[in-house]
Design a protein around this nucleic acid. Structure first.
Lengths: 346, 346
DNA sequence: TCGCATCGCTAATCCGATTTAGCAAAGGGA
DNA sequence: TCCCTTTGCTAAATCGGATTAGCGATGCGA
């Protein structure tokens, strides 16, 4: 179908110079190594006419660098929630002329090993080890330059981490309610009011709660109660809220994610309560449904796109420096003010 | 950090044989080329001890094949809707020991060219050209082995296409209502009742409508009306349904996608109508929200995962045969029976 | 005019594998 | 004993570039 690719040898012949000269010109080292302007122009013109593009595989073999990075995740690549993470990484990579390999481990260590090997065998310049939900992961040995995305190292590691700033997000959610004038009747959906009442292994749950408690505590506001659930699904949000309503009359709900909030909406609606007239709702994640719900949900957004970008940026910085410092980069989670929060009814 | 990789030369030396012999053994051609069992075992053992893995870049240079395919899309890679497409492709690729490059063009032809070049420069064995929404695309020249995913060639092309079977999906949706006993008061949300009343360039809209009309027509059932909207967003579903309710009293709604259905739910609820008691709703896509809605939405699912898998399968078949035939592979769209359809009220 | 530095370019090697062609030793037949 | 196969392995070429070392021509100062 397509005729043979144009190689450096073809280019050199067309320009009437040696392969060395052609290479020097094409890599931009012609000046430095005293190639005459005349010859340089001849090579450049020939390259343009022939449509010469260096074979990246060959360059990779010779230089040991492939202008390629690997994006390995448990399942994030295909999660609807976090596709933006890939997008951010993709764009940041493109800006640097780098391609992205992706792979999923599905939590299987065997798969992970195979995947990392396959990428290393292809001489990736660096790796992004991503996780669907923020959590701690065991860092593989000898991965070369790498960053953790949406994940923290389980044991001390010199790999940098990029994670959403969940504590600050918790503070922000609490401030949203305080700013609206709420001082009591604030309940939590997804976690209990105490620091111990969080789903195990959920960094987001723990940190969000820390932030919430900190700000409410500072304001002298007491959390009226909460319901802990592990998976944070809509049904759980419904159940938690319905259960709550049997005994209490909440004025505001902090739902630990948008799916819980969706369920909470349903339960509130069933109870004939109006959002935000009777009950204000604030949530986390900014899942697409948040802006489809009625009323539109005020929520603290997971900055997926920014996380992805940042991962690539940090990875490149690290590749330059060669000094892994295990730094933790926290990406701000912006509040999306919408329609689900109002002043408490007097 | 990590010591130098073990090369074939290291392996040969450790086993006390030539690089040729080591290579023959490792590529499994030892038998064929008369390497003694004894030597073979020695090489194998050494390889195991040293942890030898061939450098894929070098192999790629020598053999011209990279065990890598490229997944180029307009924006599908990061769309929440279609991440499953990637997942299907990823798994099918892994089963074949192949890695996946991904890239997004965002509809920019310049970006697309650059991306295709970057992939070809890296000697990908094949390409998947994917689209977010089913549509016709202009096929780039000289791409080598490739398949179109969720897309059809704008002009005649010998590249195979993999698309969801939208016409059959339309038939299925119509049958769902017929089977439930509906014979009149069936309205369309998202397209008009006539074949001309569809958003331009939307293959899905056109084909779904064709299927719907075919089955209803065969049953002697007339479509009572419809409302055409271009973007199929929740607000449009609300608006369309509200508008409809001003003049008509529908018994069933065929929403052209789940977001429209979500909006329709809201409008029906506002009008005090019960789903499915007063109005049955059937939809398309099986977006995640479909099972979060109340009542859960009966919808004809886009088989994203299967589309992705199929793309890789067809690509490999094509790479084997060298005979692009421009075949169109239609992947079935299964009905997800849930709670939004009931017999019409008598 | 000779010697040396500079200029402008190229030959040769290397990266790490695969593959072709062929060599030395052993075996077999006449 | 001589010649021809077969066996078992290896030297060398190759893929397409980057890089090192160096070569011939020119210019300049003494």
């Amino acid at each position: 179908m397509s005729r043979r690719r144009v190689t450096l040898a073809d280019l050199a012949q067309a320009a009437g110079v040696s392969r060395t000269t052609a290479s020097l010109v094409m890599t931009g080292r012609g000046r430095e190594l005293r190639i005459s302007h005349d010859v340089e122009q001849r090579v450049l013109r020939a390259a343009d006419e022939l449509g010469y593009r260096p074979n990246a595989v060959s360059v990779g073999l010779r230089t040991g660098t492939s202008r390629t990075i690997g994006f390995v995740s448990d399942t994030v690549a295909t999660s609807r929630l976090a596709g933006d993470m890939i997008k951010g990484a993709l764009e940041a990579a493109r800006e640097r002329g780098v391609m992205l390999f992706i792979g999923e481990t599905e939590g299987d260590p065997e798969l992970e090993r195979g995947l990392l090997h396959a990428m290393q065998d292809r001489q990736v310049d660096g790796l992004i080890l991503a996780s669907m939900y923020t959590r701690t992961i065991k860092v593989p040995k000898d991965v070369g330059p790498a960053v953790l995305l949406n994940a923290l190292p389980k044991t001390a590691s010199d790999l940098p981490s990029i994670v959403p700033d969940e504590v600050e997000a918790g503070r922000a959610a609490a401030r949203v309610l305080l700013d609206a004038g709420h001082r009591d009747g604030i309940y939590l959906i997804g976690v209990g009011p105490e620091l111990g009442d969080v789903p195990p292994r959920s960094v987001a749950a723990r940190e969000r709660l820390v932030g919430i408690r900190e700000i409410l505590g500072e304001a002298g506001v007491k959390i009226a109660g909460g319901r802990m659930f592990v998976d944070w699904l809509p049904e759980e949000g419904s159940a938690a809220t319905a259960d709550l309503l049997e005994q209490h009359r909440p004025k505001a709900l902090i739902c630990l994610n948008d799916r819980l909030a969706l369920g909470a909406y349903h339960a509130l609606s069933d109870a004939g309560l109006d959002v935000p007239g009777d009950v204000s709702v604030v949530s986390f994640d900014d899942h697409p449904i948040a802006s489809w719900m009625r009323p539109k949900l005020t929520t603290v957004a997971l900055p997926h796109y920014e996380l992805g970008r940042k991962a690539v940026e940090v990875l490149f910085a690290q590749m330059g420096e060669e000094t892994g410092q295990g730094e933790i980069h926290r990406v701000p989670m912006p509040v999306r003010h919408r329609e689900s929060v109002a002043a408490p009814r007097v």
